[in-house]
Amino acid sequence: MNVPLIARLAKKDVRVTVREPYFFFYLAFPLLMTLVITVALGSLGGSVPSLGVCQDDAAAAYLSSSGAVDVATYPSIEAVREAVASGDRDGGLMAGEYYVLLYAGDTTSSERAALYAAVSSALAAASGSTETVDISVERLEPRGLSLQVRLIPFLVIIAAVVGGLIISSSLIEEREHHTLDALFVSPATPFDVIAAKALFGLFLGMVLGLLILGLNGALTSALVVVFLFFGVLFTIGIGLMAGVVMNSMTDLIARMKLFNIVLQFPALVILFPQIPSWLGMLFPTHYFIAPIISLTQEGAALGDVWWKLVVLVLCDAAVLVMAAKVLRRRMSGMLHLPSL
């Protein structure tokens, strides 16, 4: 493997691709969707989580002045609990023998983290002590994921698909313009050419995926990035196959519409809870997006999702082996090459 050569090929792919009209469509579509959804659902700009506090609580004033949470006061602990249970407040602070921080069931992990941080620093300030104040945490049973959260898988899959689409589009363009012939009588090997495109697609899919997760407040742990990486890798394999199997860009777009439904099915299962959730598990992308939701919204840890990571890595291995076989056969046939 010639790394400097692959870097030069990838640089060329970036230069050529950013000048293609389809590039901005691929890039803009998921980002615009995210922005529209976040604007429509009022979560753009990182609005602060809301907290209910008893009006006689000493910490209330500190919490209000911090600006980290949107504070509302209530006459009693029961009223605070009622506000959280009804969904008016994301969390409630209740003082008794010790402090209890109550989370609403549908809060995101980032909201819970923000609430905890704000409350603990306010209590420390109110007590005038530098010692940490003990806070007991309680979470109400989730009533279901919010619409914005249910849309995250759909957007993240689009980001991953863009990574794959960039590769297939780039390969098809090279075939249509016969530029692969010129590359293959240069020092570049077919492997170098494919590796450069795969790296470019992977980079683009990751950047787009991270942006979408970030905009949706779902970038809460390193494990999320790991699942995103393997999810994008899966679509890279698909993209490589599509790049040599499809005859033209028109062919690619037409078939990707259909294939996108297959990739997006697990996202639809999450978006529409009426669909039995086990159906989503039949599709590889379930093992990519379901853990992201579990990790970011349900407080899951590696112990809860490790087996899904194993399944996803196995899916990646299968699709990449398949892609290598298809590439070897189709490209050798197309370019009459001995092998990759």
Binding site: R8, L9, K12, H177, H178, A182, L183, P187
Partner: peptide, 28 residues
């Protein structure tokens, strides 16, 4: 070796200089 193909196969969205510089870079 240098090969000039019968079929046109330049990168259409790259400039003349970019097309040549890219291949010069490949040959290092």
């Amino acid at each position: 070796i240098g090969v000039c193909f019968e079929e046109k196969n330049l990168y259409p969205r790259m400039t003349v200089r970019e097309n040549l510089q890219f291949f010069a870079d490949l040959f290092d």
